[in-house]
């Protein structure tokens, strides 16, 4: 295909599918402020992978991913108990689950090493991922699962939208909050699990978070956000994969994560309307204008001028913002309009 080698085509297909689905679904995660839950769940997959290996003694991806999913769900279960039944600060609990599970994974990994199973080398690749060794079989799994996630997303579109925006209102409509929470957890775990093979447990967060942040900077509309995030995720994954193929041993996951990071910074700084640069310029202009227009604002608020300010009104007289009647300075409708424009639209 397009002069690419068969192996590269396979890898490319896999990463693009993954980038697109984690990007678009990531929008829900980021909007629900669960970005780091994804990170915690990714780290929590490690013990499951190792246990699955110990039990089955195979490196077949299905079994390892199954193990990963089980241990991520276990971590989620503990997190839920933490959240609903104790006063423990949730972020702290999450950090401990993340690192504790990861530590458990390492402990089990050292057990596997001790037993001398030669094939254990394949296990630690889940930590940083290894897209370059993807097989056709892996890509089939990724694409089937991605399509399933996409279908579920489309099927529950309006419920997901409302639940993400306003979970309390969602419940008052008689819809099951618990079901939605479980569905979202399940989908998050699914995405994390298919992602770790390619980009690893540490960097899958980048694929989930970054496209959503970029898309949010570019669009205010929900549907467009999700489409844009999916597109960005897929595109960056493709570019990253091709870039990493240009040099031997260049790991794909970090290249993709790096590109995403650069794009996020650029989007936050330069995006057309929400970009910080434009925002800062506009704010500065506006605040300067308020400071400069202080005498006019005073006149607007206080009806008449204080005597000592007479000099300050000269320029406004010339512009027609201020008039003189019986020796008293008064603000004209044009001047009022100018002040109201400075007040900002949310003011009244």
């Amino acid at each position: 295909m397009f002069g690419l080698s068969y192996t590269l085509t396979i890898v490319l297909l896999g990463t693009v599918f993954l980038g697109a689905i984690s990007g678009s679904f990531g929008t829900f995660i980021v909007l629900r402020r669960q970005a780091l839950v994804g990170d915690a769940l990714a780290h929590a997959t490690l013990p499951g992978i190792v246990v699955a290996f110990i039990i089955t003694q195979t490196r077949s991806l299905e079994w390892l991913l199954m193990g990963a999913a089980v241990s991520a769900l276990l971590a989620m279960l503990i997190l839920n108990v933490l959240k609903h039944a104790t006063n423990i600060k949730f972020d702290a609990g999450m950090a401990l689950i993340l690192a504790g599970f990861f530590g458990m994974g390492q402990m089990l990994l050292s057990y596997v090493q001790k037993t001398g199973a030669a094939s254990q080398a394949g296990l630690s690749r889940f930590i940083l991922g290894q897209a370059a060794t993807m097989l056709r079989h892996d890509v089939v799994i990724i694409s089937i699962v991605s399509t399933l996630v996409l279908l579920v997303m489309l099927a529950f579109w309006k419920e997901l939208k409302l639940f993400t925006f306003d979970p309390v209102f969602f419940r008052t409509l008689g819809l099951s909050e618990r079901f939605m929470e479980r569905l979202l957890t399940l989908l998050t775990v699914t995405i994390v699990v298919i992602g770790i093979r390619t980009v690893g447990v540490i960097l899958i967060s980048a694929l989930i978070i970054a496209p959503a942040v970029i898309a949010r900077q570019l669009s205010n509309r929900f549907g467009l956000n999700i489409a844009l995030a999916g597109f960005t995720g897929g595109m960056v994954a493709a570019v990253g994969t091709l870039l990493s193929a240009t040099r031997n041993n260049l790991p794909t996951g970090p290249v993709i994560a790096l590109l995403l990071g650069v794009l996020v910074l650029m989007a936050i700084a330069f995006a057309p309307r929400r970009g910080l640069l434009w925002q800062a310029l506009r704010t500065r202009q506006h605040q300067r204008a308020i400071i400069v227009a202080k005498p006019l604002i005073h006149l607007y608020e206080n009806r008449q001028s204080r005597d000592e300010d007479h000099l300050a009104y000269r320029q406004y007289l010339a512009k027609g913002d201020v008039k003189v009647e019986d020796g008293v300075f008064l603000i004209t409708p044009q001047g009022q309009a100018r002040v109201r424009a400075l007040m900002g639209e949310k003011f009244s």
Binding site: R216, P251, P254, A257
Partner: peptide, 24 residues
């Protein structure tokens, strides 16, 4: 422009992947 948790996620994956690339 970005919530705190997402900011953490973006910054650390960015700097971490940079260091992994330099190492390799």
């Amino acid at each position: 422009r970005i919530k705190e948790d997402a900011a953490i996620g973006v910054v650390f994956t960015f700097l971490f992947s940079l260091s992994v690339l330099i190492i390799t």
